Computed example of a mutant assay.
Amino acid sequence: MAAELAELLTIASDVLDAAAPRFVEGVGAPSAVDKGRGDFATELDLELERTLSKQLTERTGFPVHGEEFGGPQLTSGTAWVLDPIDGTFNYSAGHPLSGMLLALVQEGEPVLGLTWLPGLGQRYAAATGGPVFLNGKPLPSLERKTLSSAMIGFGAFNIDGAGRIPGIFRFNLLGALSRLSGRVRMHGSTGIDLAYTASGVLGGAVVFGHHPWDNAAGVALVRAAGGVVTDLLGRDWNIESGSVLAAAPGVHEELLDMINATADRARGEVEQ
């Protein structure tokens, strides 16, 4: 299995490398498909997903589940999960913090993760068991850290937003986090938050989104680096999880304690 995964990782890397020039060429592409609530896709999203899906299927035999066109269910079997442009708002605005995300999922668990950041010249890749490679060079495993010394990636929110994780709760989490670590970063890209957690640039990442194409690649990277990945409730992450809490050992425990304390305060205020 390790040899097979290594071969698949090489193929996937080649496919993303071939698409990188087109990705860079399209930076600044305007919105083409309105997906609602401030979300959209560019024509490059559609083009890249078609191109990458075709090549991956032809070269590996596995189907692709993409953000724009969907695909097979992911709780069983083997399939690629693709986000052709992560950080689409950044990409469309000409901001360099955007990338291509790709994971291979087997029975609902990511076993390969690739995060390509062409605007930054960075390529992160890993298979189950590690190590994480940055531009082909292995990175050291994550060491135990404390929250007070770590930068934390934090997901976007609207304080008035409702939904699964209300905006006010996200706002309260941000406030609590600011007291424990004054180094909070909002990159506008889940892929960057998770890749930088895997590489040790960030100590952890708080991700409110649940889409597998946003999360699977980064989860694979963080796990391969020796990090801890759960949802925001502390349950082991799987492809159906509604959020991601990924961090270095030590930092994850502190973040989870902070989230639980914030939730307890919110429940107490409701009861009053």
Rank of each mutant, 00 (worst) to 15 (best):
residue 61 G to H: 10
residue 40 F to K: 08
residue 77 G to W: 02
residue 57 T to N: 06
residue 42 T to H: 06
residue 36 G to H: 10
residue 64 V to A: 03
residue 62 F to G: 01
residue 100 M to A: 10
residue 84 P to V: 00
residue 26 G to W: 12
residue 31 S to H: 06
residue 56 L to I: 01
residue 75 T to L: 13
residue 24 V to E: 12
residue 92 S to R: 07
residue 21 P to E: 12
residue 70 G to S: 04
residue 19 A to R: 09
residue 18 A to F: 11
residue 41 A to L: 15
residue 77 G to E: 06
residue 77 G to F: 00
residue 103 A to S: 13
residue 21 P to I: 09
residue 55 Q to N: 13
residue 50 R to I: 05
residue 88 T to Y: 08
residue 79 A to V: 04
residue 100 M to D: 03
residue 30 P to D: 03
residue 66 G to F: 03
residue 43 E to N: 14
residue 58 E to C: 05
residue 34 D to C: 12
residue 29 A to E: 14
residue 88 T to N: 11
residue 98 S to F: 00
residue 41 A to V: 07
residue 40 F to A: 10
residue 34 D to R: 12
residue 45 D to F: 04
residue 78 T to H: 10
residue 64 V to D: 03
residue 98 S to N: 13
residue 24 V to H: 02
residue 45 D to L: 07
residue 55 Q to E: 15
residue 23 F to L: 09
residue 63 P to R: 10
residue 64 V to K: 02
residue 31 S to T: 09
residue 106 Q to G: 00
residue 106 Q to R: 15
residue 76 S to W: 10
residue 55 Q to C: 05
residue 88 T to S: 05
residue 47 E to H: 11
residue 55 Q to R: 15
residue 64 V to E: 01
residue 85 I to P: 01
residue 92 S to Y: 07
residue 54 K to G: 09
residue 23 F to S: 06
residue 86 D to L: 01
residue 24 V to W: 01
residue 39 D to S: 15
residue 43 E to S: 15
residue 71 G to S: 08
residue 21 P to S: 11
residue 39 D to V: 13
residue 64 V to H: 01
residue 44 L to D: 09
residue 50 R to Q: 15
residue 79 A to D: 00
residue 70 G to E: 07
residue 37 R to V: 11
residue 92 S to F: 08
residue 34 D to A: 11
residue 20 A to K: 07
residue 23 F to T: 03
residue 26 G to C: 15
residue 106 Q to D: 07
residue 43 E to K: 15
residue 72 P to V: 04
residue 88 T to Q: 10
residue 61 G to C: 09
residue 38 G to Q: 05
residue 24 V to Q: 13
